[in-house]
Amino acid sequence: MTDTFKALVLETHAGSPSAAVRTLHADDLPAGEVLLRVHYSGLNYKDGMILRGQGNLVREYPHVPGIDLAGTVLESADPRFAPGDPVVLTGHRVGEIHWGGYAERARVRADWLIPKPAGYSARQAMAAGTAGFTAMLAIQALEDHGLRPDAGEVLVTGATGGVGSIAVSLLARLGYTVTAVTGRPENSEYLHHLGARHIVPRADLADAPPKPLLGERWAGCVDTVGGDMLAHVLAGMAYGCSVAACGLAGGAQLRTTVLPFLLRGINLLGIDSVLCPAEQRLATWKRLTALLPGDDLDAITTEIGLDDLPYFAEQILAGRIRGRTVVHLDPEDARNA
């Protein structure tokens, strides 16, 4: 094993981060019980924020971003993992406060790892990644609060993004009537192919609602946008139904009233994929892999390299990425490691 490897390194210049591919040494890696050879990572909205210096998510530089990774154990001081084991890591603030997956090597805590989900290659595990994991968590939360396939229309906002695309597909497979929100009419065929029954133009929901309560239309919602769109959705929820909120592409502020909660008894469910307990994490991945075959993930996935990340970070923040984007990190690795 070589002691040097390539990584995308963020450094600050005049208060703004800039990214460049560097050659690092194994001694540069942070502390952790497990050393990994990284095969793939993924590009998420949060990765875009980190690469563009938004949200104050990274506090110390230089820094290696990438909140997801799939790889193989090279060395382990923890008995749960042995050299050669294929593993996946999402969450735990890796890529934020701990060096992440945009590198050919990573050293991490054993508690953050899970075995690679059966039935997925490393590439497919990253095509799912935080996006698929979050979508599955959101749907499970809605089901836990009473959502059933015969309840009515289930809305997915930001439907062409990573979380949204997978949420549309999963809901359709579970028998729900899915309505997808998009600002790009040219994506309608893509969304129908994923399983959306209806398409709503983003402009119809983009602004805060004209009044606190609108007609009761939605039986459930996976919201990846937040901001005024979430406020609009809340005003249109049917009695006793729920919204699973898991994104803030439209802003972190929520201009609404308590009336939808008090007069219609609706629920706003926060979805956190970062610190999700291990038992729930494993069960959620198991259900995700059972519902969403790897071949279907391949169909919505674009593959890039480390050098491409700065450009694609801009694209994901601008809402120009459709589906999922994976980052191939190991040139010697077989495609389906």
Results as ranks from 00 to 15, higher is better:
Arg184Thr: 15
His328Phe: 03
Pro209Leu: 09
Leu10Ile: 00
Asp207Phe: 12
Leu262Asn: 10
Val168Phe: 11
Thr325Cys: 07
Leu170His: 06
His193Val: 12
Thr257Leu: 12
Gln54Ile: 14
Ala103Asn: 02
Val222Gln: 02
Ala203Arg: 12
Gly215Trp: 04
Ala231Val: 09
Gly129Gln: 06
Leu137Tyr: 09
Ala318Leu: 09
Glu60Tyr: 08
Glu104Val: 09
Gln54Ala: 13
Gly227Phe: 02
Leu275Gln: 12
Val9Gly: 00
Pro117Met: 06
Met136Gln: 15
Val222Cys: 05
Ile166Leu: 10
Ile114Ala: 11
Ile199Lys: 03
Ser121Leu: 12
Thr284Asp: 03
Leu306Asn: 00
Val73Gly: 02
Asp295Thr: 15
Gly42His: 00
Val243Gln: 08
Ala238Ile: 10
Ile300Glu: 02
Phe312Leu: 06
Pro185His: 10
Glu279Lys: 13
Ala238Lys: 15
Leu174His: 04
Gln140Cys: 09
Leu43Gln: 02
Arg281Thr: 08
Asp111Met: 11
Val274Glu: 05
Ala231Gln: 06
Arg109Pro: 01
Gln315Ala: 12
Leu292Asp: 00
Thr177Met: 06
Ala131Leu: 13
Ala252Met: 14
Gly161Ala: 07
His232Asn: 15
Glu153Ser: 14
Asp28His: 03
Leu194Glu: 03
Gly323Thr: 05
Arg197Asp: 12
Leu10Glu: 00
Pro115Glu: 05
Cys276Ile: 15
Ala131Ser: 13
His145Asn: 15
Ala244Asn: 07
Leu269Val: 11
Val168Thr: 15
Ser18Gly: 07
His63Ala: 10
Thr289Asp: 00
Val87Met: 03
Gly227Arg: 07
Leu155Trp: 07
Leu213Ser: 08
Arg173Leu: 10
Trp99Asp: 02
Val156Thr: 09
Lys211Trp: 00
Pro62Ala: 07
Leu268Ala: 10
Asn56Thr: 10
Thr2Trp: 00
Ser273Thr: 10
Thr23Phe: 01
Tyr102Trp: 10
Glu11Asp: 13
Leu142Met: 11
Gly319Ile: 09
Gln253Ile: 13
Arg59Asp: 08
Leu275Gly: 07
Gly215Val: 06
Asp307Met: 00
Val88Leu: 15
Ser76Gln: 04
His192Ser: 04
Thr23Ile: 13
Lys6Tyr: 00
Asn56Trp: 03
Gly270Ile: 08
Arg217Pro: 02
Pro331Glu: 01
Asn267Ala: 14
Ala7Cys: 05
Pro277Val: 09
Asp333Gln: 12
Thr284Arg: 08
Leu205Lys: 06
Val88Glu: 01
Gly250Val: 12
Leu259Phe: 15
Met1Asn: 10
Thr301Phe: 02
Thr12Lys: 13
Met136Cys: 13
